[in-house]
Amino acid sequence: MTTVAINQEAERTITFYRSVVGKKVMMAVTGFLLFGFIVMHLIGNLLIYLPKDSHGQWPIDVYSAQLHAIPELLWSARIILLVAVILHIIAAWQLSVLNKLEARKQGYVRWTPVASSYASRTMVWSGPIILLYVIYHLLDLTFGAFNPGFEFGQVHRNIVASFTRPPVAAFYIIANLCLAFHLYHGLWSMCQSVGIAHPRYTPVLKIASKVIAVAIGIGFCSIPLAVLSGLVR
């Protein structure tokens, strides 16, 4: 009896995921988790602008230490995010193969966009760029592989060390512009994918998505610029 029920549930999940709508829901849900992380991460990062506290410590270093204080929590979050990233990528990959390669074998000689945004048409490019950057970013600032004189826990120092190299700062800025583009379309899109739409709220939602995307882009990009300009040392 139980096995049947479990099989049925498994079957249901598979059927759900197999459908294009299911995949888009998967992208929306994982996208939402990642968006949540990005917001938290940005708030954390912006602590870099705060001066040293009374103990002579950078607030961002303190915050980092607090995050690492409960490894179970940290690792749970990391695993959830990692799974979300993987699922987001798999679904995106599968949908892109269908959309870009399968559904229209012969393209148009001329095709003129009427309503779609540059952001929406480049999701398939902005995504991989962000992914590449995230890998580099982890190696640089989490594991310290590329960071000159990396010191665990010395977040402020590590960031400054990383961004004083103009190519790294440039890469970071490009990636975060991609992120902003990705969110510019993605934030509203995820609502639509899970079925949230109403003529009264959708326009607001669309504008809000754009504002949030731009704010996030500015927030992240400001850090390397601040480092390069010497505002943060």
């Binding site: 459908s19 995949k23 229209r104 966009p113 309503a115």
Partner: peptide, 18 residues
């Protein structure tokens, strides 16, 4: 209907709005 749409090899909606 969603299953049939997919079986016909139409693509997925990515909310372009075209």
């Amino acid at each position: 209907m969603v299953a049939q749409m997919q079986a016909e090899l139409f693509g997925a909606c990515t909310n372009h709005g075209e």
